[in-house]
C-alpha cells in the first residue's frame, strides 16, 4: 500500500518520501497518516462525545451544590476542563513546533497550524466561563490578577500563532516563524500553573494537584474528571479531523500544481 503512494511523487512533497520509514517519520507519510487517522477518529470522537455529555449532565443535574457557592459551582465542570485544555493544547503545539524545527517533520507543521485555532477556542471558552463564574462569586467579571492575566496572554499567543503561520506566501516560512513563537511562549505555561502559588491572586489555588490530595468532595470530583476526559478526547478529535483535512488539502494543492506544470510542458 505504501509503495503505491511512493510511486507517485507528484502527490506528496519530495522530502516526505526521502525520510519515510525512519522513526517518527513513519507517520509522516501522508497516505499512511490518512488511513491511520481515519480509522482512529471515530474511536476518539465517540467516547469524547459520550463522556462529555455524561460529565455535563452529571455536573449540571446530579452533583451537589457547594455549601457556599450554591449552584454556581457547576460552572466548574466546564471551566476547569477548558482551562486544562488551554494549557495542554499549548504544550501539544510546542511539541509539534519542536518536532518541526529540529526534525523538520512535515506532519508536525500541519498539526501545529491546526492545533492553535482549537486551542484558542478552548482558551476563549475558559475565559468566558471563568468570567461568568467570577461575576456572581467574586463580584467582578474580570480582575487583572496574575492567573487571569497569564491566561489572557496564552490566548494572545494562540492568536499570534494563527496569524503568523498564515502570514507568509511561502508556507514553510510561516511554519518556521510560528514554531519559534510557540516555543518562546512556553515560558507562559509555568507562569499560568504557579501564578496562584507565587503571587497573591484573587483566583484560588488549584484543587487538584499532582502530589496533594484533592481539596474537593469525591461526589464533585468524579463528574469533573469525566468531563475533563471527555473534553480532552473532543479536543484531540477536532485536531485530528482538521489535520486530516489539511493533509488532503496539501495533496490537492500538489496535484493541481503538478497538473498545471504538466500542461505548461505540453503547451
Amino acid at each position: 500500500m505504501v509503495r503505491r503512494v511512493d510511486a507517485r511523487p507528484t502527490i506528496a512533497p519530495p522530502r516526505t518520501l526521502s525520510r519515510a520509514g525512519r522513526g517518527l517519520h513513519r507517520f509522516a507519510n501522508p497516505g499512511r497518516f490518512l488511513r491511520l487517522s481515519g480509522a482512529l477518529l471515530p474511536w476518539i470522537a465517540a467516547p469524547g462525545l459520550a463522556l462529555t455529555a455524561a460529565g455535563l449532565v452529571w455536573g449540571l443535574f446530579f452533583a451537589p451544590a457547594d455549601w457556599q457557592q450554591g449552584d454556581a459551582v457547576r460552572i466548574m465542570y466546564v471551566h476547569v476542563p477548558a482551562a486544562w485544555l488551554a494549557s495542554a493544547g499549548y504544550l501539544a503545539l510546542a511539541g509539534c513546533s519542536a518536532a518541526s524545527l529540529v526534525w523538520r517533520h512535515p506532519l508536525a507543521d500541519l498539526a501545529a497550524a491546526e492545533i492553535s485555532p482549537v486551542g484558542a477556542g478552548f482558551t476563549a471558552m475558559c475565559l468566558i466561563t471563568g468570567s461568568l463564574w467570577g461575576k456572581p462569586m467574586w463580584g467582578a467579571w474580570w480582575v487583572w490578577d496574575a492567573r487571569l492575566t497569564s491566561v489572557l496572554v496564552l490566548f494572545f499567543l494562540y492568536l499570534g500563532h494563527i496569524a503568523l503561520v498564515r502570514a507568509f506566501d511561502e508556507p514553510e516560512r510561516g511554519y518556521r516563524a510560528g514554531a519559534i513563537l510557540a516555543l518562546v511562549g512556553v515560558v507562559n505555561l509555568p507562569i499560568i500553573k504557579f501564578s496562584v502559588d507565587w503571587w497573591n491572586t484573587l483566583h484560588q489555588p488549584d484543587s487538584i494537584t499532582l502530589f496533594g490530595a484533592p481539596t474537593m468532595s469525591l461526589v464533585m470530583l468524579w463528574p469533573l474528571l469525566l468531563s475533563a476526559l471527555g473534553y480532552t478526547l473532543v479536543f484531540a478529535a477536532l485536531v485530528l479531523a482538521r489535520t486530516r483535512a489539511a493533509v488532503m488539502e496539501r495533496r490537492i494543492r500538489a496535484l493541481l500544481t503538478a497538473r498545471a506544470r504538466h500542461l505548461e510542458i505540453l503547451g
Binding site: 457547594d66 455549601w67 457557592q69 467574586w138 484560588q204 481539596t215 474537593m216 468532595s217
Partner: peptide
C-alpha cells in the same frame, strides 16, 4: 470595591 475570594475547597452543603 469589595471582592470575595473563595478558596480551593469545594464541599456539598450536607457535608
Amino acid at each position: 470595591e469589595v471582592l470575595a475570594k473563595h478558596d480551593e475547597t469545594y464541599m456539598p452543603k450536607d457535608v
